[in-house]
C-alpha cells in the first residue's frame, strides 16, 4: 500500500473538490477499498472520507418510493421497516451479503462500486484486463467456475459480486450523483457499462462523480418479492448464482413480474426477456421454466460454469412457483 493523503469531508462540495484529483478515491466503509489497497490492486494517492456526509437517510418519496442516501450502511438499509415492507427482496439481498460486521461498515454507495472477487483480479501478480488493460484474461482458460455466463467478452468473464445491486436492478433503481458541474442520475440498467473490450471501465459515472443516493420508484409488485442466493457455503460467501424475483398474479395470470440474476454477469442481470415472455401469460411452473430458458438462451458457457444455467433456471422456477402459490392462498 503506497502512502496516501486522507481528507475527511462534511459536505458534498468539499468532497467533490478533493475528489477531482484523478488519484483520489472516496472512502465509505472501506470494506472493498482498504482490502484492495493492501493487496496492491488499487493505489490511490488520496482518500476522501465521505462517511460523515449528510447522506445517511432513508426517506419515502412523494410518489411512494424510497430515497436512500449513499452513506446509509447496509445494516441500516436491511433493518429499515419501509425497505422490509415495500421491497423485502432488497432487505434479503443485503442480509445475504458479507457478514454483520461488514454490513455495519459498508455503505450503499460503496456497495454499488464493489469490484469483482475474481481470483485473478485480486492477485496483483496475475494478468487481468480489468486491472491492467491488455494483460489478458487467465480466467477464460483457467479457473472460472464462478464466472459469467451472460454479457461477458473475450476480454473479461468476471462477475459483479453485489447482492444488493441485484435487487435494485429488479426494482428499477436510479443512482444519483453529484459532479463539479452539477447533479446527474443513471438508471441502474445504464449504471454498469457493458464489458466489451474495456473491462477496466466499470460504470458510467463521470470522473470525480460522487454517488449521493439511490431512488427506488414505487413498485407494488415488490411487496411480494424475495431474493435467493446460492453459494459454496451457507453464509459469508459470494454468490455463485442468485435471483431477485417479484410476482403479481391475478386469476392465474401474470400481471407483473420482476426478475434479476446475480453472479452471472459483470453487472446485475435484469431478465427483461423472461419478464416479457411471462407478462400476461399463465403463472405455471412450465411457463416460468420457458421464460428462464428464453432469458438464458443467450448464455455463453465456459467448460466449468455451465451449471449456472441450470442453477438460475431452477431458482427462477422454484421462486416464482412459490410466489404464485402464496398469491393463490
Amino acid at each position: 500500500m503506497r502512502e496516501f493523503g486522507y481528507q475527511r469531508v462534511f459536505d458534498v462540495p468539499d468532497a467533490l473538490a478533493f475528489g477531482a484529483d484523478p488519484e483520489a478515491r472516496y472512502l465509505g466503509g472501506g470494506t472493498n477499498l482498504v482490502d484492495l489497497m493492501k493487496t496492491g490492486v488499487d493505489r490511490p494517492a488520496l482518500l476522501v472520507d465521505v462517511r460523515e456526509l449528510p447522506l445517511d437517510r432513508i426517506e419515502a418519496t412523494d410518489s411512494g418510493g424510497l430515497r436512500i442516501g449513499a452513506t446509509v450502511t447496509n445494516s441500516d438499509l436491511a433493518a429499515h421497516p419501509e425497505v422490509r415492507r415495500r421491497y423485502p427482496a432488497l432487505a434479503q439481498a443485503v442480509l445475504a451479503g458479507a457478514s454483520g460486521q461488514l454490513r455495519n461498515m459498508a455503505t450503499v454507495g460503496g456497495n454499488l462500486l464493489q469490484r469483482t472477487r475474481c481470483g485473478y483480479f485480486t492477485d496483483s501478480s496475475q494478468p487481468c484486463n480489468k486491472r491492467i488493460p491488455g494483460s489478458g484474461c487467465p480466467a477464460i482458460k483457467g479457473e472460472h467456475r464462478n464466472h459469467a455466463i451472460l454479457g461477458a467478452s473475450e476480454h473479461c468473464v468476471a462477475v459483479h459480486p453485489s447482492d444488493m445491486s441485484v435487487a435494485l436492478a429488479a426494482f428499477d433503481a436510479v443512482v444519483h450523483y453529484e459532479t463539479a458541474d452539477g447533479p446527474g442520475e443513471l438508471p441502474l440498467a445504464e449504471f454498469y457499462l457493458p464489458v466489451g473490450d474495456t473491462p477496466h471501465l466499470e460504470t458510467a459515472l463521470p470522473s470525480g462523480a460522487l454517488i449521493t443516493g439511490i431512488t427506488l420508484p414505487p413498485a407494488p409488485v415488490a411487496a411480494d418479492s424475495r431474493y435467493r442466493k446460492v453459494r459454496e457455503r451457507a453464509s459469508y460467501a459470494f454468490a455463485i448464482g442468485s435471483v431477485a424475483a417479484a410476482l403479481d398474479v391475478r386469476d392465474g395470470a401474470v400481471r407483473e413480474v420482476r426478475l434479476a440474476f446475480g453472479a452471472v454477469a459483470s453487472r446485475p442481470w435484469r431478465a427483461r426477456e423472461a419478464e416479457r415472455v411471462l407478462t400476461g401469460g399463465p403463472a405455471t411452473p412450465h411457463a416460468f421454466a420457458d421464460a428462464a430458458d428464453t432469458e438464458l438462451a443467450a448464455a455463453e458457457v465456459l467448460p466449468h460454469n455451465r451449471y449456472k444455467v441450470a442453477l438460475v433456471r431452477n431458482l427462477v422456477v422454484a421462486m416464482l412457483t412459490e410466489l404464485a402459490e402464496e398469491a393463490a392462498r
Partner: peptide, 25 residues
Amino acid sequence: AVRDQASGALVGADLAGYHFAANAD
C-alpha cells in the same frame, strides 16, 4: 484450493477464496 495451470499459483489464496465451514454450515 485451486491451482492455476498457467501460472502454477493458487487462485483465490485467501479466506474468501478458500472456504472452510462457517458457523451457518
